[in-house]
Simulated scan of single mutants.
Amino acid sequence: MFWSSISLSPTAIASPPFPLTELFFPPLSPTPTLTAATFKLRSSSTCRCTKTDLTSQHEEPPPNPYPKQDEKPQAAAAAAAAAEETFQVLTAIHTQYNDILIVDTPQSRMLLLDSTHNVHSVLQKGDEKWTGSYWDEFVSLPPIVTEGPIAIYGLGGGTAAHLMLDVWPSLQLEGWEIDEILIDKAREYFGLSNLEKCNDVGGQLQVHIDDAFSHEQHRPSGYAAIIIDLFSDGKVLSQLQEVCTMCQ
């Protein structure tokens, strides 16, 4: 994660997308990865994922032949939890910019993008709003910058916008996303349209479907801060690795 100045001294934040396997598959040793074939081979929209769906280039170490007596029930419960996790594929679609996959679990709903199937947005269910990932840190931004609109480059499913408006309901946010179909899916499955309505204290998310690096529609006065959440194929966009981009 980094902080830097853009335009009229806004603040930028970036961090890599959260891997799917670390989010709702219990960690194994070594950490497995979920392959794209796991989803392509499913004929039903409801999937039951087992250890056979996880691939690893290394063999797991043999179990301890002499476990402690009190470790057996815990080990059995952990093995059962790790062996099986139910989730439902809500939609899977290919667009000009993305391979979009939205999955639903008992605890959360997740947006997976491109061939890496990295998680780019999370919507928690129930009373728990925090994701345990880098989106939570964006909430600390409003009180340390000047008053004014905050831009989000790479809106995705709107995880950052949900969290920020939940904690700071009077915020004026502007989200930039290049994929119109992705925005439609975010409105349908992640409640993005609710954020676009002006709330009781004047807070609101304004959505721009355009290239975040196109300044034609940007505010002439700039933003109080800019959150950069732009990734492709599991990597930071090449434009963000150029000095000239960060100095605009």
Rank of each mutant, 00 (worst) to 15 (best):
F138S: 13
V139T: 10
L141S: 10
L141D: 12
P143G: 09
P143M: 12
I144N: 07
V145E: 02
V145D: 02
E147N: 08
G148Y: 01
P149S: 12
I150K: 03
A151P: 11
A151N: 10
I152Y: 04
I152T: 04
Y153F: 14
Y153H: 10
Y153D: 08
G154H: 03
G154Q: 03
G154M: 01
G158E: 04
A161L: 05
H162S: 13
M164L: 03
L165S: 03
L165V: 07
L165W: 03
D166F: 00
D166Q: 07
W168I: 06
W168K: 02
W168D: 06
P169W: 09
S170R: 09
Q172G: 04
L173W: 03
L173C: 05
E174R: 04
E174H: 04
I178P: 01
E180G: 03
E180R: 02
E180P: 01
I181H: 08
L182R: 00
D184Q: 07
K185I: 08
A186W: 10
Y189M: 05
Y189E: 07
L192V: 05
L192F: 01
L192N: 01
L192D: 02
S193I: 15
N194Y: 12
N194K: 15
N194W: 12
E196D: 08
E196W: 01
E196A: 02
K197C: 08
K197T: 13
C198D: 08
N199C: 09
N199L: 08
D200P: 09
V201H: 00
V201I: 13
G202N: 09
G202W: 08
Q204R: 10
Q204C: 13
Q206V: 14
Q206E: 15
Q206T: 14
V207R: 05
V207C: 09
D210M: 15
D210L: 15
A212D: 06
A212H: 06
F213V: 05
F213E: 06
F213M: 07
F213Y: 07
S214W: 14
E216T: 14
R219Q: 12
P220F: 10
P220M: 10
S221K: 10
G222S: 13
G222V: 14
G222R: 10
A225I: 05
A225G: 06
I227S: 02
I228W: 07
D229I: 11
L230R: 02
F231N: 11
S232R: 13
S232H: 12
S232E: 15
D233T: 08
G234K: 04
V236F: 06
V236A: 11
V236L: 15
L237E: 08
S238Y: 04
L240M: 13
L240W: 13
Q241E: 14
Q241Y: 05
E242S: 10
E242M: 13
V243M: 12
V243A: 10
